[in-house]
């Protein structure tokens, strides 16, 4: 399965869902395919899942999609028991697992290239719906269910290690601009101020 194919199918399905992305090539690919103000491209490993939890708790009436990578989840494995116990029903986590560390233009196997099974870890942590998909059609089914149904989902998507994102022209929208665009979008759609304080 190719991550870009997953995103190319999913991006047009999105309406008002919040999306939080981790670092890897997914940030570049999703940013290329989706230009929504509801996208929060974090640009750091090990944070997307936890930031997504915070958003899901703060905005329980909105669906929060988190796009993670195997390296990023492995960096913050302690997120999984917390996610299981908080169990936000409005959250769907898709882990694009290419079984490698390749972000710095190296290619080094991650633990999931060996014996480690992230879906099994998630289930062991207490997340009831934690599955692995290997085919695009299975991804589409899980994503469609995530769009249309309530309940925490943790979906490990086994993908090929690709370098197509390196050919995509990177956005020059920096992190602060991304934050303000996202926050102003929430202020508009939630009808309340996000940042407090005097002007």
């Amino acid at each position: 399965m190719i991550r870009y194919d997953c995103f190319e199918w999913l991006a047009p399905q999105m309406t008002d869902q919040i999306v939080v992305t981790s670092l890897s090539g997914q940030r570049i690919e999703w940013g290329h395919l989706s230009k929504r103000d509801a996208d929060l491209n974090l640009g750091s490993m090990g944070n997307a899942l936890a930031v997504g939890i915070g958003l899901a708790l703060a905005l329980p009436h909105r669906k929060v999609f988190v796009f993670e990578s195997d390296g990023s989840v492995l960096l913050s494995l302690f997120n999984l028991p917390t996610l299981a116990n908080l169990n936000p029903p409005n959250m769907a986590v898709f882990v694009f697992d290419n079984q490698a560390y390749s972000g710095t233009r190296i290619s080094y196997p991650s633990a999931t290239a060996g014996k480690t099974d992230l879906a099994a870890i998630a289930r062991g942590s207490g997340i009831e719906h934690a599955v692995t998909v290997t085919e695009l059609d299975d991804f589409k089914k899980e994503a469609t269910d995530a769009l249309n149904q309530s309940g925490l989902r943790f979906v490990v998507c086994k993908i090929e290690e690709t370098v197509g994102h390196r050919k995509i022209t990177r956005s020059n929208v920096d992190l602060l601009e991304t934050k303000y665009r996202f926050v102003r979008y929430l202020e508009r759609t939630e009808g309340k101020p996000i940042f407090q304080g005097r002007g």
Partner: peptide
Amino acid sequence: MGSEAEGVSIAAGAALGGKVV
């Protein structure tokens, strides 16, 4: 929480969602 690290990141997400954290 399993770690203060995730506590900070969860708090950040909640702050971006409109909570005082």
